[in-house]
Computed example of a mutant assay.
Amino acid sequence: MNFLSKTPSWVGHHVAAIRVVVVLTVVLGLAYPLGMTALAQVPGLRDQAHGSELSGGGSKLIGQSFLDRKGAPIPYYFQTRPSDAGTGYDASASAAGNLGPESTVDVLGPDGKQSLLTQVCARSRAVGELEHVDGSRPYCTADGVGAVLGVFRDGGTTGRATRVVSLDQACPARPFIASYEGVAVECAKPGVDYGKTVVTPIRGDAPAHPKVPADAVTASASGLDPQISPAYAKLQIPRVARERGMSEAAVLKLIAQYTSGRGLGFLGEPDVNVVELNAALDRTHPMKGA
């Protein structure tokens, strides 16, 4: 007598289900992962599979801050662009600043917040001082804040100017211009509401094409990009060459090794991977005591 012929149908269904689970577990839970792991070790794929690691630690795909404990740039390293990811290049907090071109007026006071314009102005001034070049930019004051006036007019948004305030220069700062439309310019008092003024950015006499490139003063969308423009890299050559005891030609040659062209020959712009470049500098021209 055939025992299976008397087995209830539901038992057969369960046996079939168990067989499927066992087969899928072996194939997808063991064979497939082991196969992919083995494939990832093939030359040409291993580096990407391991996160594009650098020999000294970190990844060539994620930017790093090259600052000292006080937050100042380390002079013998190429500097990256600003980062809004956490406290800077925090891979667990990828983020953008979410400020746009209309962000020109600071919130002054102890709990204040800088506008995007003032952030750009301050960064450009700091880079200019570090690299010994002109850090001035249009719509920026000499002291590194937005050159923005708040103009009170007798017609509300139109008419004669009756009072003018330099909105991003907190008192007792001296306004970047003495008068506007014949009215003396005042410094801004923290906590005072200047919302009824007509916001008026002043271009100033800065060059149309600043010495400090745009990527040196603005963060990337992710806050983690390790690349800078070739223009920003070249701006830093004299400082790095001097600190490392190298010729500028040697530094330029090293930059060329870590410069990538446009994607597919026409997408985007050429860029320099600062993380890889600084790692190469440490290998070829290490700093004593660093």
Results as ranks from 00 to 15, higher is better:
234 K>N: 07
33 P>D: 01
13 H>I: 13
289 G>K: 12
11 V>A: 14
24 L>V: 14
8 P>V: 13
266 F>T: 10
246 M>V: 02
76 Y>R: 05
282 D>N: 04
209 H>E: 13
109 G>H: 12
148 V>W: 07
38 A>G: 05
132 H>S: 00
189 K>L: 13
258 Y>V: 07
86 G>T: 09
283 R>W: 08
231 A>W: 05
11 V>P: 14
273 N>V: 05
15 V>S: 12
170 A>N: 11
177 I>E: 11
11 V>D: 13
23 V>K: 06
284 T>G: 08
187 C>W: 02
78 F>P: 03
132 H>I: 02
39 L>Y: 07
17 A>S: 10
204 G>Q: 04
204 G>P: 09
95 A>H: 12
23 V>I: 11
83 S>D: 00
263 G>A: 12
8 P>C: 11
179 S>Y: 15
250 A>I: 06
199 V>R: 08
99 L>K: 12
54 L>P: 12
80 T>G: 13
102 E>H: 06
278 N>Y: 11
78 F>G: 00
225 D>Y: 08
43 P>H: 06
84 D>V: 11
282 D>E: 15
68 D>Y: 01
108 L>A: 04
7 T>H: 08
262 R>C: 04
208 A>T: 00
54 L>E: 15
233 A>C: 02
173 A>D: 13
148 V>M: 02
30 L>G: 06
91 A>E: 10
161 A>R: 11
31 A>S: 01
156 G>R: 01
187 C>A: 09
127 V>Q: 10
246 M>P: 02
32 Y>M: 13
72 A>T: 07
99 L>T: 07
246 M>E: 08
166 S>D: 06
79 Q>T: 01
54 L>Q: 15
148 V>R: 00
125 R>N: 02
24 L>H: 12
219 A>E: 10
6 K>I: 14
78 F>N: 02
46 R>K: 12
76 Y>E: 05
94 S>D: 13
